[in-house]
């Protein structure tokens, strides 16, 4: 087992999975030209779930979560987010994007805006929140990710870990009901991974529905209620973290786990 990056007890009291369906993916297929990236994906995410998606690179895990907010288009099957089906209808896409927050591997903060402006941009222009209220919300989330003092700086002046925490706060300012994390710690120096994971754990403790593509297996064990293993564009195995790590069924999963866990 890899060493977990955190020692504190994870508070599970608010982590409750409800019966309500947050995301429903049925028989979804996607191609890049002739390359079949995602094959027959079926996945139902209940509200309050914390799902970690793992798998070797090129297995389609990032593509899968990027389909959920239409950064990538799927060619076959259905994706229903919050009861809204993703089609070519721009209005539906915009509605879904307002409900679904996303955190990227490379943060993608807007370098020409201050941290505060990064956080208030979408609430003001998309949600039409009054400026004063948007600033209050932004400061609230900056305090939550523990960097309120950086509000007036520009992203280029912050460390990678701080930038990623700002990126999380930026998504939260839109009050999303679902958060997608696309390898949020892969571009960070080791000493900064912990601060980002801590923020993500806090979010999970508050009951946020989360889908995380990550290689942080310690995080998966501590927080996830379900781990999905993908290979070659397919969901190969999914289980609760305890059984997933201790009793993997498929050979691909065993092979993958032995590679990333067995030093």
């Amino acid at each position: 087992m890899t060493e977990p990056h955190f020692e504190r007890e994870v508070d599970r009291s608010h982590m409750q999975v409800s019966d309500e369906v947050a995301i429903q993916i049925e028989n979804m297929n996607k191609w890049y030209g002739q390359f079949h990236v995602l094959r027959d994906i079926d996945l139902t995410v209940q509200r309050g779930e914390r799902i970690v998606i793992a798998g070797p690179s090129g297995s389609g895990k990032s593509t899968l979560i990027r389909c959920i907010n239409r950064l990538e288009e799927h060619q076959q099957g259905k994706i229903i987010v919050d009861g809204i089906e993703l089609t070519n209808d721009l209005k539906n896409i915009d509605k879904i994007r307002r409900e679904v927050g996303m955190v990227f591997q490379h943060f993608n903060l807007f370098p020409h805006l201050t941290i505060l402006e990064n956080l208030t941009l979408a609430p003001i222009w998309v949600r039409k929140t009054p400026k004063k209220e948007a600033i209050e919300t932004a400061m609230h989330f900056l305090e939550k990710v523990k960097i309120p003092e950086q509000a007036d700086k520009y992203p280029g002046q912050l460390s990678g870990g701080q930038q990623q925490r700002v990126a999380i706060a930026r998504s939260l300012c839109m009050m999303p009901r679902i958060m997608l994390f696309d390898e949020p710690t892969s571009a960070l120096d080791p000493e900064m991974i912990k601060e980002v994971l801590d923020t993500m754990i806090e979010l999970a403790e508050e009951g946020m529905t989360m889908l995380c593509v990550t290689h942080e297996m310690g995080f998966a064990q501590a927080v996830a209620n379900r781990v999905i293993f993908m290979a070659d564009g397919q969901i190969v195995e999914q289980n609760n973290p305890h059984d997933f790590f201790n009793n993997p069924q498929s050979d691909r999963t065993k092979q993958f786990l032995s590679q990333i866990l067995g030093h």
Binding site: L90, R98, F104, H106, F107, N108, F110, H112, L121, V126
Partner: peptide, 25 residues
């Protein structure tokens, strides 16, 4: 590309993304 994606993911439409995020840079 990440700048376009971040603007999209936040729900900014094409013109707002251009005006607020892409064109200033």
């Amino acid at each position: 590309r990440g700048q376009y994606e971040a603007a999209d993911a936040l729900g900014l439409d094409y013109w707002k993304a251009q005006r607020l995020v892409i064109l200033p840079q």
